[in-house]
């Protein structure tokens, strides 16, 4: 199945969904140079947020550990450990800060023709 990201009002194919390990993230490069962090959780749900850690400026959020608190999924930055809600992009440790959220979906390849 093909993983797709919402980009300029279209769905941009990224990779085969089996490439991602459940519970772990990967980064994707958009045509305009932005980087997106993709995650897949234990239950098989997908999330996509900006890859840039706003606290350090480094493109590393895809390499953080994910977890859940109060039923909501988050990723902890691998640099200074601030946590970001994977659904809203809100930083759980600093109300002032958030990262962008991207639309993500998985499409049956067989359905395309």
């Amino acid at each position: 199945m093909m993983l797709e990201l919402s980009y300029l009002d279209e769905w941009l194919p990224i990779c085969d969904d089996s490439v991602l390990t459940p519970g772990r993230g990967m980064a994707a490069l958009l045509p305009d140079g932005r980087q997106v962090a993709l995650f897949r959780d234990r239950a098989g749900r997908w999330y996509a947020i900006d890859n840039r850690d706003p606290f350090t400026g480094a493109q590393v959020l895809s390499r953080g550990l994910i977890g859940s608190a109060g039923g909501r999924p988050f990723v902890a930055s691998p640099l200074l450990k601030q946590r970001f809600d994977l659904e809203s992009g809100r930083c759980l440790d600093d109300e002032e800060t958030s990262v962008a959220v991207y639309g993500i979906r998985v499409r049956e390849l067989a359905a395309v023709s």
Binding site: T21, P22, G23, R24, T56, A58, Q59, V60, R63, G64, L65, I66, P78, L79
Partner: peptide, 20 residues
């Protein structure tokens, strides 16, 4: 499963520095 449990340093068997 263990791949998903490790901090980034263990995951890439190297130490992440400030610019990634």
């Amino acid at each position: 499963e263990r791949a998903a449990l490790q901090d980034t340093n263990d995951h890439f068997l190297a130490n992440m520095q400030r610019n990634g």
